[in-house]
Design a protein around this nucleic acid. Structure first.
Lengths: 338, 338
DNA sequence: CGCTGGCACTCACATACGAAGAGTGCCAGG
DNA sequence: CCTGGCACTCTTCGTATGTGAGTGCCAGCG
């Protein structure tokens, strides 16, 4: 177990390194934080911290920098979440309130997060499977062509074209629309398959094929793979990464373009609170030198999606966590209102 | 006027520089292209080309690189558009055909363009103002709350929440829906304001306020500012920009995040064919070292939106132009089918 | 036992110098 | 108008050297 002072030394190292972006030495440490001991003592502590794997030196006779393990300890034990100031909270609220539709909410959230944290922001659209159905609309565009429109309680709208095997009359369509809505409106998307499975039986033989086609399109829309969308922003902040970044930035940009990777990344956050994954804790190789701070958000008590930021492992964790948490909270409010 | 050979020299310089990314000297030129003259002669030609402002040397006693003006001449007079090969065309078509909805079409187009050109791809959603109305749907979500859904012939869907000044009955809603659609279905969005202006008069006094509110929301949705959306991708390709790129890549990423800037950029392309804007021809400062290749696309004869790529001025213009043109053509086809 | 000051040691980094090489401009001759 | 030759200019790269930050270790002190 590390002594109290050694933990303080680690905290000081993390703070200084995050601020200066340069390896921090024993002398500088004692000057900037009054630890009450001499550089030599700090050196001993640093040697111990290095043995434990919390810090490392890039090369002999340079200062120390925190390792992923060091940041982990810092986040878990040494630092809290820095709450937003009142003016900041007001600004967040104001900015989000101007949104006209869900796309706009998400777009604004991304910009806000990127600006607040000066990092790359990732916001997942409210998940379909975790939402409830507000309305299902069917529009006849041609005799054998129907547009299916799905609307969730979070304001998300999905649409699909359906090519019917046989012409489908206006009255049959109205019938299907009514039956469908009476069964699924207000229900969770996950329950929809069971709720509609016997629906074709209620129709005339000639329409049954079309009804089945419409329903299967509906169910397809709910399949996990298609339904997860997200928006990213603030990639320009990647340029503040480090001096060496040709090699650093490339894999990150590539990872950010892979929606699948990002969704996994956000999905891993299980905790009800803010989740932090540091450096190599991220499964994806390209993100080994980044940290991901994420949290769920939702219109009610339950999370319907995730949002977060991606930044260098050398980041201001308390501040970032505070910003992410605050934004998630306000987005949830906005969604609940709409 | 430049002699034929000098133009050939310029063409050779552009091609070599695009290939090697390094300033090209007179000796290397004569070796790789059989111009039939000696390096000394080429040197004279190069001096002339430099006087005219088509090429420049980064520093004394280095090779020459093309200037923006040089690229312009190359694009206008010295190079054509390189058509895609048959397998490439098939691949494009196959890839786009798997799309399930408009978002998917746009997303796939972005990925395709980025991959084909190895540059940053930008695709604008089909414009509302240049499309026609397929259907307007009104859904009653609460007594005094209506959702407005707009569907275009290109498959684009916009929705807005409307808070009504007074409760609005199902029958009035159905009435409004029917009247609205009979007036605007199949018409161009730009004509909608005139077509609906007298609509409130057909309703009872108590509903008139609500009808006006719904209509004004509809018109707001059509306002230029809100209706232009776009998607970008392939930003990882920016890392192939140059060796110096901290300074190069930053402003480009920033510009790409400004939707307004990008829309202007694409909007400037007036030509029915492929438009190329080179380096300083781009109004936005951050894009002074990039070229933008763009083209309109549309479901019918007319362009409903633009797409293009952003890359270094040192790019393979004929190949890029070919890819952009081909993708635009196939996207148009896909949209026409849906 | 823990803290401290002192001291020798190690590298990264910056600066300077020199050689190499690529490329140019110019000129005289064909 | 083209060509070979030649002197000149700079960038680039490798080597050498000095400087300084930072370290590890040790002996002494409270």
């Amino acid at each position: 177990m590390l002594s109290e002072r050694r933990l303080q030394v680690l905290r000081a190292i993390v703070q200084d390194y995050v601020g200066t972006e340069e390896p921090v030495g024993s002398k500088a440490l004692t000057e900037r934080h009054n630890l009450g001991v001499s550089p030599a003592t700090v050196r001993n502590d640093m040697a111990a911290l290095e043995d434990e794997g919390y810090i490392a030196q890039p090369h002999t006779s340079a200062g120390r920098i925190p390792t992923d393990r060091g940041y982990r300890l810092f986040v878990d034990k040494l630092a809290g979440v820095k709450p937003m100031t009142a003016p900041e909270r007001r600004a967040i609220q104001n900015f989000l309130e101007g949104a006209v539709d869900l796309d706009d909410v998400v777009a604004r959230t991304v910009r806000l997060l990127a600006q607040l944290t000066r990092q790359v922001a990732v916001v997942q659209y409210p998940s379909l499977t975790r939402s409830t159905v507000r309305h299902v609309e069917l529009l006849s565009l041609a005799p054998a062509r129907v547009m299916l429109v799905l609307i969730t309680d979070t304001g998300r709208v999905e649409q699909r074209m359906v090519d019917c095997p046989a012409p489908f009359g206006e009255s049959s369509l109205a019938d299907l629309r009514a039956r469908l809505n009476s069964r699924v409106a207000g229900r969770r998307f996950t329950d929809v398959p069971k709720l509609v499975e016997d629906l074709p039986e209620a129709f005339e033989a000639e329409d049954r094929g079309t009804v089945s086609t419409v329903l299967s399109t509906l169910l397809e829309t709910l399949v996990e793979e298609n339904e997860e969308r997200l928006m990213i922003g603030g990639t320009a902040n990647l340029t503040r990464f480090g001096h060496d970044f040709p090699l650093t930035i490339r894999p990150v940009l590539e990872a950010l373009e892979e929606q699948v990777v990002l969704l996994k990344l956000l999905g891993e956050a299980k905790d009800p609170g803010v989740t932090v994954r540091i450096g190599h804790e991220n499964a994806h190789e390209g993100l080994n030198s980044t940290s991901v701070v994420s949290v769920g958000y939702g219109s009610g008590g339950e999370a319907v999606a995730k949002l977060g930021v991606v930044g260098p492992t050398r980041m201001d964790y308390p501040g970032t966590m505070g910003a992410v948490r605050a934004v998630a909270r306000y987005v949830g409010q906005i969604l609940a209102e709409s």
